[in-house]
Amino acid sequence: MDSLNKIAAIILTYNEEQHISRCINSLKNTVDEIFIVDSFSKDKTLEIAESLGARVYQNPWVNYATQFNWALENCDIQSQWVWRIDADEYYEDNKKLDLKKSLSNLDQDITGIYIKRKIIFMDKPLLHGGWFPVWHLKIWKYGKGFCENRWMDEHIKLTEGTTTQLDCVQVDENFNNLTWWTDKHNHYATREVVDLLDTKYQIFSKSSVEPNFFGTGEQRKRYLKLAYLKFPLFLRPFIYFSYRYFFKLGFLDGKSGFVWHILQGFWYRFLVDAKIYELKLKFKNDEQEIIEFIKKEYSTK
């Protein structure tokens, strides 16, 4: 296969039978290869993916970054470009943009593409509160980037080249109910605790994304995470919610937006702080013991 301007999509899956066909079908007329890296699903995810022409691999789950980097190293990718997309996401086709043609017109030193991410929650696109448009590096030249190994907030880090933006949208719309959502975010909260403490104490390794408020979206997000860490426990969820919902006009997204901001912008972040407080109580605020506990329980090596 001539790899020039061809695109390979990589999708990590586990029990995604209700999402995977939508995701694959949204990509079929745009990408050339679709790779599924599955964590031993128990439903019909693999059957559906294979029927739609995707190539399926399986590998035990450790965390997102480890799984995605395994995919980059082990999938038989023949394309020039790689696209990172989750099973519950899909490509919102832009009739005004020919993605392949746009890639062919790029300067040779461009190795990464930022595209827009849109969240749909309870049938409502979240267009306010700072949630849209948010630009993410989702497409990059194969061999020129990797997923930084963090437990949360992992980004693609380019090893060389520059980036640009293309006006296409990757939509995040999950069909599961709120019981599933809150359970998932309970697990996310534990990962967020590990990531926040790793960010604060540099437990595992120095971040490959340098914090910079005036830099890329990833650099700005990392800068704001460090700033967030400086606020007191339990106060910062109130600040975060107020900033998103009032200052960034999240209230304009109606009832669905209100539920989102209460759950994602307040409850979730309050839960993270409660779990950090629980650790502080368990180890009597001994930072070294907390660090050793995180190293023992969450090291990926």
Score class of each variant (00 low, 15 high):
residue 235 L to F: 07
residue 236 R to C: 09
residue 237 P to D: 04
residue 237 P to C: 05
residue 237 P to A: 05
residue 239 I to H: 09
residue 239 I to Y: 08
residue 240 Y to E: 10
residue 241 F to E: 14
residue 242 S to A: 15
residue 242 S to H: 13
residue 243 Y to H: 15
residue 243 Y to M: 14
residue 245 Y to M: 10
residue 246 F to E: 01
residue 246 F to C: 01
residue 247 F to Y: 11
residue 247 F to D: 05
residue 248 K to P: 03
residue 249 L to C: 05
residue 249 L to D: 01
residue 250 G to L: 03
residue 250 G to Y: 01
residue 250 G to H: 01
residue 250 G to D: 03
residue 251 F to R: 00
residue 252 L to G: 03
residue 252 L to S: 00
residue 255 K to H: 10
residue 258 F to V: 00
residue 260 W to M: 03
residue 260 W to K: 07
residue 261 H to D: 08
residue 263 L to R: 04
residue 264 Q to D: 04
residue 268 Y to L: 11
residue 268 Y to N: 14
residue 270 F to D: 04
residue 271 L to F: 12
residue 272 V to N: 13
residue 273 D to V: 08
residue 274 A to P: 00
residue 274 A to Q: 08
residue 276 I to N: 07
residue 277 Y to V: 06
residue 278 E to G: 11
residue 278 E to K: 11
residue 280 K to I: 06
residue 280 K to F: 07
residue 281 L to P: 06
residue 282 K to M: 09
residue 284 K to C: 07
residue 289 E to M: 15
residue 290 I to T: 10
residue 291 I to Y: 13
residue 291 I to P: 08
residue 291 I to K: 15
residue 293 F to P: 10
residue 293 F to R: 09
residue 294 I to S: 14
residue 294 I to T: 12
residue 295 K to T: 02
residue 298 Y to H: 14
residue 299 S to Y: 13
residue 299 S to P: 05
residue 299 S to W: 11
